[in-house]
Design a protein around this nucleic acid. Structure first.
Lengths: 197, 197, 197, 197
DNA sequence: CATGAATGAGATTTCATTCAT
DNA sequence: CATGAATGAAATCTCATTCAT
């Protein structure tokens, strides 16, 4: 393979994807850089060319995962026009993540568990959550402007939604639910739709 | 220095507490048996006298944590007489765990993250969650008997409650909320109380 | 169990048998004192009451094994009257050890392997071999006295016999032979019987 | 200090030789990987770069030892032309191993002792013995073809030879024999030469 | 840019031995 | 006599990271 210039973004993505795969298959803390290198069909050395160290790689895996999910949500919401539809779309897309991208919550869970011991990780997840809640707050801003909602309620609703979604996803990893999961998803949507009616 | 007979229960508890402390201060998988031994002021060898291996210790830390929390919930619920009061008590005590025993959710979070890779852990957490949901299902059984609730709703409610509680607790670790946490707690109780009215 | 006096020989034998069993089931160097204690249904502590240390126990297991085998040979030989019959009986009994007491050669083999690094063991095995060869030398002494055999031949024969027996036994552990083993046994007896004819 | 590419065969041989030396000086199972690393002037880590684990290293030491000895025998035999000379050469070279390569039988003895507990080792030694017996069987095939020998005798002779050689070698480790060893060697050759006369 | 050999600290686990009771 | 709790050294093995090529 001839060395090429401009490989940086390609290699970085290649390594991040391999790391993500290793993390999912072996467990968050149970894969080695050698595992990643093998998965990515690269040498161990090259990983250290593109990432400062393992911690740095961890951070980039997290950013990558969050980026994808945030994009999904953003697209679903901006596609709609009315506030009511935006709100519904948000609930739908958030409730669908565990099915559409089951790995996402495994990744999130693992990083969440690290967050008390790692401030970088904590900041990144917090920012992600805040962004996610920002979508609903924007949607609900309408109601606030019209006086139907207080700013406190606006914030509370957005936080109740994300935490319920997170909780359901984590619970779903443990309890085999099959048909139940759609019941729960519907109930999730039903509960929070009340707020815009 | 002073070997005695019948040390087993004392030492086991001592080691479990030390392990829990290490886990909380360093994070799951980031503490060593040596750390636990030092914390417990014992030699490393003695840990293996009472626990088969590190995995076995992990499992007992988890069981110990769950035992305490389950007991708290059970006591709160059985203290009340009417179904309505039992339900309220349940919501109150569950919502209070993050304040009353903040370590509990850190422990839970860490083990939850391991659950996809460790079936023992998965089983224990699942059982804990099911037990916890069992409390509400028992309370709601009244409503089912009277025809006010379907069994499906009974199950759905119990699962919505535990997942929302879990989600709020995890979110609370990230976002500094102070006064917000009580708002969220109240909203949590308000939402789910609807079901018994 | 009430402590008794005069337990020494009983306990020692009990421990030696347990150690032998552990050695055979787990491998020479792969059993612990705890294993022996469990097998003997005793505490680890008592073993150190009756044996100085593990090495001492090893030595006594060896002596015990050799004692049994030497006794078997002695009995077989002394039972016979004529030199010719004694010689035959010796060959028969020596050739029969792998069948009659298959453990013996596993024990011998393991100690033999230790002998270059442990002078005690080396002395004990050497003495055993010399004793065993002594039987034939005694039998052949008759031939020497009558001038049919030189003392050199007498010694050579005895050594050829023990080494051939040992070699066949070890080989028999590796190569599954079934019917072959009796052919080899017969050939072994045939070859060495030549010497007294 | 100086990582290079293509070190694999060099390092493997280096580690195998160091392990062999450690085994000979300390005894099978009584040397540590650290001992090997020090002997080879390498870090412990590098041993695990080239060998999966200690067991894997054991196996390669054995294969290496057997390879050398088998080569010696093969060369001695193929050098001769007549079957009678080949047979003599075989007996001579086999009888000479304890003098020419005294380490060989110490290695063999140690592994032999492990064979009841380790199937890999058992297979390797068995194969070696069978190969060694194959040489004589090939030589004696001539006699079988001419009807002077039955296939049963052919196999029996080859097994008697290898077992006697093995037995003499092991006995020679214990009993200091000096001049005796040549007497025994001559007798060994004499006994088995009978078969081709 | 890329390789993979090398390091060495550190983790888990075992176990002979001691000794208070 | 007997117990089994306790010690702590030592063994195996892993792995992030570096660096000569």
């Amino acid at each position: 393979m001839s060395p090429k210039v401009g490989m940086e973004p390609i290699r970085r993505k290649q390594v991040i994807e391999a790391a993500k795969a290793c993390m999912l298959s072996k467990g968050f803390d149970h894969f080695s850089i050698k595992d990643v290198a093998e998965k990515a069909q690269l040498s161990t050395g090259v990983i250290y060319h593109y990432f400062k160290n393992k911690q740095d790689l961890y951070v980039h895996v997290l950013k990558d995962s969050f980026g994808e999910t945030e994009l999904m949500v953003r697209e679903a919401v901006t596609k709609e026009n009315s506030y009511r539809d935006k709100f519904s779309a948000y609930l739908e897309v958030v409730a669908a993540v565990p099915e559409d991208n089951p790995d996402f919550y495994i990744i999130l869970l693992n990083y969440l568990a690290q967050s008390p011991y790692n401030d970088d990780v904590k900041q990144i997840i917090s920012k992600f959550l805040i962004n996610l809640q920002g979508f609903i707050e924007d949607i609900l801003q309408h109601g606030v402007n019209e006086g139907r909602l207080t700013p406190l309620e606006q914030k509370t609703i957005s936080q109740m939604i994300t935490s319920q979604a997170m909780g359901l996803a984590f619970q779903g990893m443990l309890l085999p639910q099959e048909e139940r999961s759609s019941v729960l998803k519907d109930e999730f949507i039903r509960i929070f739709k009340q707020y815009v009616d």
